[in-house]
Design a protein around this nucleic acid. Structure first.
Length: 603
RNA sequence: GCGCCUGUAGCUCAGCGGAUUAGAGCAUCUGACUACGGAUCAGAGGGUCGGGAGUUCGAAUCUCUCCAGGCGCGCCA
């Protein structure tokens, strides 16, 4: 209903100016914007929209807010275009103007949606001066080579994927970058250990199977901590790798390839696609970055390291913490890599991505780091005009005890185990249900439903919460069949699919829609809110807003389904209701698709 | 010590400067299956929005301050 919002907003603005012709200049003098402050109605009984602007103007105009509202409404009543869309506005409370859309107007909107596979969501405009589609980079997931993906990667992966999907749907060119940790000093010990354990792997072309990478990593770490000779060899190995020695590079590549395979298994299960571009990609640029920052006079040598002290942040800390761009041993660190990445991503092709917006989906613990790095990029003038650079932080994953999520023995929980358990629990729920309902289903059906429900539950539970706060992980809650959970949403889709199977769906284009119950009008209004929710998520990067919307839509639908017959209704109500069912299913499927969640026809 | 984030019902959380009565879900209690899948629906109880001050016609929302918790804080990423 964004189009209607804009139209009505303009009508009110116009009415305001006509009612108070001198108000524009006076408002300007007083530094007040002439915004009618049109927003969604806070409660259904107040209509569809409410304009809150009259109160703000009271002082300026030296009139009662209700009187101002009255004058605006008088003007609105003379506007034919407005009258065509809305019922007569009502003035309420201190001076709110409540606006309710006419039924014909709503029906017209529904009609448009039925013929629109974007469900009213506009595609991003390419402004006339610009040649290209705006590019957004979503940097997410980012596991480390030779380590297994664990709960710590869950939120970034799920939230980042959903944001990427939403931006893609809006028509942006989206680059989903997996900034994996494929470089650093730990490779010294890993390569040294690999050369010892599997020297033959370095001579043949085939990738080796290291089995459990976590075990491999732990073995290497253990030797590093206890064996001086091994430590010495590891340090030499880092130098060799950085120097590009063939055998070391080969070993590094083998380790990366091995890890990549493991990561891919998880991404396949989660239905996530990513372009791998690890930290090592930026190696060739690091020296140049430090040089450039040096030339700009931003860098200070402190205790042997090349540092940048920012007066905008960390001002009060004592001693003041710098951002280190080159270590005292000459090596570079993650700040350097991130700076190189920012520069590269904003640069135009072929030596960059030409990004207009960069989004980093990482835990909130890195907020200080990004604040510093972003500030440096700004000081160095690397951020193009109108481009955006954003950290999208999220909180910790906690167990039901409120502590950081761990296994009973205190180990980090592997992502694959977590997914296995979710699916296993969904499966046992399902088989119990099938048994109690005397249903016979194939193993393939059970497998598909359990997998879909399990993965959906994990994703939805995470996405449905405001990402900024910590997230309490609970299998019981996420798999609950009632409430704001994935199974509840999936069930709504299944119910509609049931209607479709029994009654068929719309054959041709539906004309002559007719509605009579309050449940239908509630459903219609819920359906029409989809587009503004998508725009909101695009701007705020909060997928939980979409989840809340989909849950509320499901609730409104289930109420309708429970209280209003569809297939047994007489025409034209029958086909009108079927149309609402279809639109509900389409909206739920599209919405859940944008969350990265698959839906089912039966469950 | 400094910085960032969080504090809303028994629990988990929404809440976008706006309304008498601050909303959901879970849990608890009471109802509804001869209408499309009851994995549903209808209803009830449950709150000094961490405390205090300020800005505003209006504050859970903005500002300040205090309290509590989490995370981070020079050469790991």
């Amino acid at each position: 209903m964004l189009n209607l919002y804009h139209t009505i907003n303009n009508h009110i603005k116009e009415a305001l100016e006509r009612a108070f012709p001198s108000v524009s200049s006076e408002a300007e003098k007083a530094g007040i914007s002439l915004d009618p402050q049109l927003v969604k109605a806070s409660k259904p009984e107040f209509g569809d929209f409410q304009a809150n602007g009259a109160m703000q103007l009271a002082k300026l105009l030296k009139q009662q807010p209700r009187a101002i509202a009255f004058s605006i409404v008088e003007q609105l009543k003379t506007n034919k275009n407005f009258i065509e869309l809305c019922k007569e506005p009502e003035i309420a409370g201190p001076g709110f103007i409540n606006i309710t859309l006419k039924n014909d107007c709503l029906i017209n909107e529904i009609q448009n949606r039925l013929n629109d596979n974007r469900l009213g969501v506009a595609k991003v405009e390419v402004k006339s001066g610009e040649r290209k589609t705006p590019t957004v980079i979503v940097d997410f997931s980012s596991p480390n080579i030779a380590k297994e993906m664990h709960v710590g990667h869950l939120r970034s992966t799920i939230i980042g994927d959903s944001l990427a999907r939403i931006l893609e749907f809006r028509g942006y060119k989206v680059l989903r970058l997996n900034h994996i940790g494929d470089w650093g000093t730990q490779f010294g010990m890993l390569i040294t250990h690999l050369k010892d354990v599997a020297p033959e792997a370095l001579k043949h072309a085939n990738a080796l199977d290291l089995g459990d990478l976590v075990v491999f990593y732990r073995e290497a770490k253990k030797r590093f901590d206890n064996d001086n000779a091994f430590q010495e060899a590891s340090r030499n190995e880092v130098v060799k790798l950085q120097g590009g020695e063939a055998l070391s590079v080969k070993a590094w590549q083998l380790l990366c390839a091995q890890s990549r395979q493991e990561f891919q298994k998880i991404y396949d299960r989660l239905d996530i696609r990513l372009k791998e571009r690890g930290e090592s990609f930026y190696n060739p640029y690091l020296e140049g970055v430090v040089e450039e920052l040096n030339n700009l006079g931003l860098v200070v040598k402190d205790q042997g390291a090349q540092c940048i002290f920012l007066d905008t942040i960390n001002r009060q800390s004592e001693p003041q913490a710098p951002v280190i761009v080159q270590k005292s041993d000459g090596g570079f660190n993650y700040a350097t890599t991130d700076l190189a990445a920012i520069q590269y991503r904003f640069n135009n092709p072929p030596h960059g991505d030409g990004a207009d917006r960069i989004i980093y989906v990482t835990d909130s613990g890195q907020a200080n780091h990004f604040e510093g790095v972003f500030q440096i990029a700004k000081n160095a003038n690397w951020i193009p005009e109108n481009a955006k650079l954003e950290h999208v932080p999220f909180g910790l994953v906690q167990g039901e005890d409120g502590k950081k999520l761990k296994t009973r023995s205190g180990q980090t929980i592997r992502l694959r185990d977590l997914l296995d358990e979710a699916i296993e629990r969904a499966k046992s729920d399902l088989t119990n249900r099938l048994q109690s309902e005397d249903r016979n289903e194939t193993d393939a059906f059970i497998e598909e439903v359990a997998t879909t429900v399990g993965i959906a539950a994990v994703k939805y539970a995470d996405l449905s919460q405001n990402r900024i706060s910590n997230y309490q992980f609970s299998f019981n809650r996420m798999l609950n069949l009632q409430g704001n959970t994935a199974p509840y949403l999936l069930y709504s889709v299944v119910r509609i699919a049931g209607i479709a199977r029994k009654g068929g769906f719309i054959e041709n284009e539906i004309t002559e829609l007719k509605f009579e119950t309050k449940q239908e009008w509630s459903l219609i209004r819920a359906l029409l809110k989809f587009d503004e929710i998508i725009i909101e998520v695009e701007n705020e990067l909060l997928p939980n807003r979409l989840c809340t919307y989909l849950f509320e839509l499901s609730q409104v639908f289930n109420r309708f389904y429970d209280q209003v017959p569809v297939l047994k209704a007489r025409e034209p109500f029958r086909k009108s209701r079927i149309a609402l069912c279809k639109l509900t299913a389409d909206t739920l499927k599209l919405g859940m698709g944008l969350l990265g969640i698959r839906t089912l026809e039966r469950m």
